[in-house]
């Protein structure tokens, strides 16, 4: 799976529960914030064409973001070993192939550092964004 791809079951799984609806509402609110930021940036920069901003990337599913938060909280400074990461991923419904997507691409949120799973700066950014959404 691509790190930015939304899996087909995510929408269906989210939509049938109150928690899912709330998660969707948070995503919509976050999307509005991103649009406002994009508009403000365009107004500030004179509407010049610009590379796709970080904040304009595709929203990630709730479970995707929760897994990143878990890596942050449970990995500490050194990160997680592959066994612990696999177990966390399974708890969020990801198989091995799905977990591989977290490490691929220019904006991969996770990296293997000396054999341990750690957030990249992009992963840390997603964690910060998600924590802000949860606290809104």
């Amino acid at each position: 799976m691509s790190s930015s791809a939304r899996e087909p079951d995510d929408d269906a799984a989210d939509a049938v529960t109150l928690q899912g609806v709330r998660a969707e509402l948070r995503r919509v609110r976050a999307g509005l914030v991103r649009i406002e930021e994009g508009l403000a940036a365009l107004e500030r920069d004179g509407a010049a064409p610009a590379p796709r901003a970080r904040t304009q990337r595709r929203p990630r599913p709730e479970r995707y973001l929760r897994l990143l938060v878990d890596v942050y909280e449970r990995g500490g400074r050194h990160g997680l070993d592959s066994g612990a990461f696999g177990a966390l991923g399974a708890a969020h419904g990801y198989d091995r192939r799905g977990l591989g997507g977290f490490f691929r691409g220019e904006h991969a949120p996770l990296a293997l550092v000396e054999g341990r799973v750690q957030l990249t700066p992009e992963g840390a950014r997603l964690v910060d964004e998600h924590l802000r959404e949860l606290s809104a």
Binding site: V69, E73, V127, D128, L131, L134, S135
Partner: peptide, 8 residues
């Protein structure tokens, strides 16, 4: 480092 994790 990220005080918002306290809320979790």
């Amino acid at each position: 480092e990220r005080p918002l994790v306290y809320n979790l």
